[in-house]
Design a protein around this nucleic acid. Sequence first.
DNA 1: CTAACTAAGTTCCAAATTGAACTTGACTAC
DNA 2: GTAGTCAAGTTCAATTTGGAACTTAGTTAG
Lengths: 196, 196
Amino acid sequence: MSAPSGASEQKNGTSEITQDSDDLPDMLDAKLWQNPCPFSFRINYLSLLYNTPLYAWIQDTYGLKRHEYVVIYSLALADGGSARDISRTSGFPKNTLSRAVKRLEMMGLLEERSKAPGGGRRQALRLSDKGRKLFNETVSVFESYEEKMLTPLSKGERQILFELMSKVVVGAEDWADDLPQTGATDSTKNAKGEMR
Amino acid sequence: MSAPSGASEQKNGTSEITQDSDDLPDMLDAKLWQNPCPFSFRINYLSLLYNTPLYAWIQDTYGLKRHEYVVIYSLALADGGSARDISRTSGFPKNTLSRAVKRLEMMGLLEERSKAPGGGRRQALRLSDKGRKLFNETVSVFESYEEKMLTPLSKGERQILFELMSKVVVGAEDWADDLPQTGATDSTKNAKGEMR
DNA sequence: CTAACTAAGTTCCAAATTGAACTTGACTAC
DNA sequence: GTAGTCAAGTTCAATTTGGAACTTAGTTAG
């Protein structure tokens, strides 16, 4: 219910739920076209469609969990970054990343860190040659999957999309993390988060 | 390292890692501007920035986990939908949703289902009045947070963005779930996934 | 009608996740 | 110097998660 312009609503006159049944649910239509937050849904849904098969493939092919591969990818782009940086930019909590780093180090994908114990201060993480090789082998799969995702768009449209999305992300500093409407959002509590 | 045009690279001459330290990491810059998958990063990162505070707020205010609220939201848009539909459109696995539905039912947010046990066939889930009330109370917060996210864009730009994103999602049927490059991706294995 | 097949939903339990404490180290003020 | 503060990283324990097996029903073939 909840809105007009539903995708389908004929068939039998009883009050049954309409459902194409074979494939994509009615619900997808509703979430796309009757959603009060259409942009949010689109980014979430596309992220899902993009990430799921890629990380499943990474898992099957290299035995790396998503957060582990994220570490590799992050360091490939920003060598010498810290676990905190990866946490901030990926949303995985720092203890999850701590374990990921430890495992990747054991697997020889990261350079050995000098100071391991306790914690202390910022650790610059670096890919080993093996780690960089892994990245180089895999990145093109990610790239071409993004390419595939953008197939419906012309070159020019992609450029526009890139610019608009960039604007939104750059502007995010202003809004990120203060809730609207909700009067007294006490700031003493730090949000967790994730991504997937 | 890893690329030119790095954000900052002066300071002390030693081989230290450059880092603004105070706030946003260098790594974010790298992921934005030297990323082979710039679109994928943007949707993932924006999803993170959007979802995290909202679901933290939901949790604090109503004691509902993300997947539980997702059930509410989904049914508000597509009443009579099934757990499977929610799974397909949100990425949460069906057993997680099964538990969520059970709890929401106990909390009186969903209408009682007639057939509970075992499973069997498609169950049409429906919000109770209480559930719909909860949705109505919360949806505006989600809406205005999306609004905030899009602040940097003009009305016209938002329209364009909407259309481009729609094109991509609609085209997704074609590419979703077949991996590129990887020759023999056996299809007998079903990908899991999530969203957040 | 019965058997076989398919798929939604549930249950189970081993494994993963993450909040909370803790450790460690740097930086600051005195 | 020393005390105090702050934040990165680690560890621990309790909860949560989700793959796999199972149950239940509808649907189809014989």
